[in-house]
Design a binder for these strands. Structure first.
Length: 272
DNA sequence: AGATTCGCCTGAGAGC
DNA sequence: TGCTCTCAGGCGAATC
């Protein structure tokens, strides 16, 4: 499941293959993603040059020479690959962008939770991006910010940090891992956590994501695959998916708890 | 407004 | 072996 580090890894891997490339042709085999792919997007894409590959939250944004943008989201199971033309089409290969290099940028997404959206150049902002909170690596994101936003909030801290309006890019796995590093139990109300602990949490979120980006970058070298935690970071997980196993810090059995319908993992000894 | 629930999907794994 | 069932999860939309 692609989280922010995976999407950033994909973006970096994509860059050398797509920057400066013209889109010779767009082939859409399946329009029914999370939202239907616009009819006629093929014509709008044809002949456009890709000027930049950006990321906002978990959205990939291809900036075109026309000033328009193409927004891609990988959802749960999306993958983007650069493949040679003539590479056999497998099930769930929904979109091909044929590039002037002769290769294809191919979108593959079995569960179709992903998206491909047109963002016209004349629109200042896209509605999906307007409400988003700061990037975790943005200087504006720190413990004081988190603490301020948490005033009066009774939601569990884990749900709070997974709320994209508060901070983007913290998915289920990294939320559990960040809270472990910060020593905070996932079910505690966000508004009842001290400033000092919010600072520790903000630091943990940043460091967990930064490490994952580094390791994703060294692992998914063949590119451009986003199969989630296929990389080394999987070996760095302290609590996620480790129910009943010994805490790597203290040996206590890791517990699993449902919070907001999501599996959450924590060490009852290290996290209070 | 904040909190909670729902719905969209397929593949992997468990159980029979 | 092969079926059925359960679960996983991003996140916007709807509802409470």
């Amino acid at each position: 499941m692609p989280e922010l580090p995976e999407v950033e890894t994909v973006r970096r891997g994509l860059e050398p293959h797509v920057i400066g490339q013209d889109i010779v042709k767009a082939t859409i085999r399946e329009r029914r993603l999370r939202w239907p792919i616009d009819q006629g997007i093929e014509k709008r894409l044809k002949g456009r040059r890709i000027m930049a590959a950006e990321r906002r939250s978990k959205y990939l944004i291809l900036v075109l020479d026309s000033g328009d943008r193409l927004i891609l989201h990988l959802g749960m199971s999306g993958r983007l690959r650069i493949v040679d033309s003539g590479t056999p089409v497998r099930p769930h290969d929904h979109v091909d962008l044929t590039l002037s290099s002769g290769r294809l940028l191919r979108l593959h997404d079995p569960r179709r939770f992903g998206a491909m959206l047109w963002w016209p150049g004349h629109a200042r902002e896209h509605r999906l991006l307007t409400h988003l909170g700061p990037e975790p690596f943005d200087p504006a994101f720190d413990g004081d910010y988190l603490f301020g936003r948490a005033r009066g909030r009774r939601a569990a801290i884990k749900n709070f940090v997974m709320d994209g309006r508060i901070v983007v890019g913290v998915g289920n796995i990294y939320a559990s891992e960040s809270l472990f590093r910060a020593g905070i139990r996932p079910g505690i109300a966000a508004g009842r956590i001290s400033l000092a602990r919010h600072r520790r949490l903000a630091d943990s979120i940043r460091s967990v994501l930064a490490e994952a980006v580094e390791q994703g970058g060294t692992t998914l070298r063949d590119f451009v695959g986003a199969d989630g935690l296929s990389g080394y970071f999987q070996q760095s997980l302290f609590v996620y998916g480790r129910e009943g196993q010994a805490c790597l810090a203290c040996g206590t059995a890791i517990r699993k708890q449902l919070i907001g319908q999501r599996s959450s993992f924590y060490c009852p000894n290290c996290q209070r």
